[in-house]
Design a binder for these strands. Structure first.
Length: 268
DNA sequence: TGTATTTGACCCAC
DNA sequence: GTGGGTCAAATACA
């Protein structure tokens, strides 16, 4: 590391700092009733974001997080769909097509970005709906491992704005699937055809020198406030655009989970 | 041929 | 009754 350019060395130091805060945050999540002297999750999250911002600045990447990227996540007690599942499982209703309970409150996280997010998880699209007063259809994705591993994570992706192009990704549920090699990684990956990925690993087992990421810019992202209650209708939230683009790039985006979300970030 | 996507139908919360 | 979330048959693709 001694031979590294000073900016890169500082960037690595910044990443180390961020990793430490992320580790603290992880411990806090796993053991909320732990040491009372531990900083709050909010403080730790702020530190992690700050670390990312500083790192990006050091690397001359466009700094988008301090202004256009907000972060929050919530790990609310998920509305127990289990009870619903158990109800379904004991009812013939479960066998009927389209039988479900509408989601009202749940663990969720919204991310706005200029490109569909590639987050490292494998998703399968299972539906698309035109939403009232929304100019673009909403796309529904579930984890590929829903059936083989019972992973209940889902996400919805909707283009919400034309200029600048903006996509809103809403995650529901926790990943319970095993992603193997990706388990200990935090991906800040905003893969898209126009935006190569930015990848940062926080694997504690990785030597610091192996921490890496591409120098390509990632699209600005806004990780918005997670809601305790997801409104059943978000109509009116959308900017109506006269232009309708039939070719939906969301269809090209199949992977991803953004590990800022409350899912699967810290071996849950 | 196996897997992923599309899309209309179904069901239920509101 | 309506709108949103999910299912599953049909279709596309590698």
């Amino acid at each position: 590391m001694e031979n590294l350019p000073s900016d890169r060395r500082k960037a690595i130091e910044e990443l180390e700092r961020g990793r430490d805060f992320a580790s603290q945050l992880r411990r806090l999540v796993l053991n909320p009733a732990g040491d009372v002297t531990t900083p709050s999750a909010r403080d730790l999250a702020d530190e992690v974001v700050t670390s990312f911002s500083n790192t990006l600045l050091l690397l001359n990447l466009p700094s988008h997080d301090s202004q256009t990227q907000q972060y929050s996540s919530c790990v609310l007690p998920a509305k127990s769909d289990d009870s619903e599942d158990s109800c379904k499982s004991t009812s013939a209703v479960r066998e009927r097509r389209g039988s479900y309970k509408r989601r009202r409150t749940s663990q969720s996280s919204e991310i706005d970005s200029e490109a569909p997010i590639d987050d490292g998880h494998a998703w399968r699209k299972y539906g698309q709906k035109n939403i009232m007063n929304a100019p673009y259809p909403r796309n529904y994705f579930r984890c590929t491992h829903r059936y083989d591993q019972g992973c209940q994570a889902t996400k919805q992706v909707q283009r919400i704005q034309e200029k600048p192009v903006l996509y809103r990704t809403t995650y529901y549920g926790q990943h319970t699937c095993n992603r193997n090699s990706l388990n200990n990684e935090i991906l800040l990956d905003a893969n898209s055809p126009s935006h190569p990925s930015l990848f940062i690993s926080f694997d504690n087992n990785l030597p610091t020198d192996q921490a890496f990421f591409s120098s390509s810019p990632s699209p600005p992202m806004t990780i918005t406030q997670c809601k305790e209650e997801i409104p059943s209708s978000s109509s009116g939230d959308y900017v109506v655009s006269p232009e309708s683009d039939d070719k939906d790039p969301i269809s090209d985006m199949l992977c991803g989970d953004f590990v800022f979300g409350p899912f699967d970030c810290f071996d849950g």
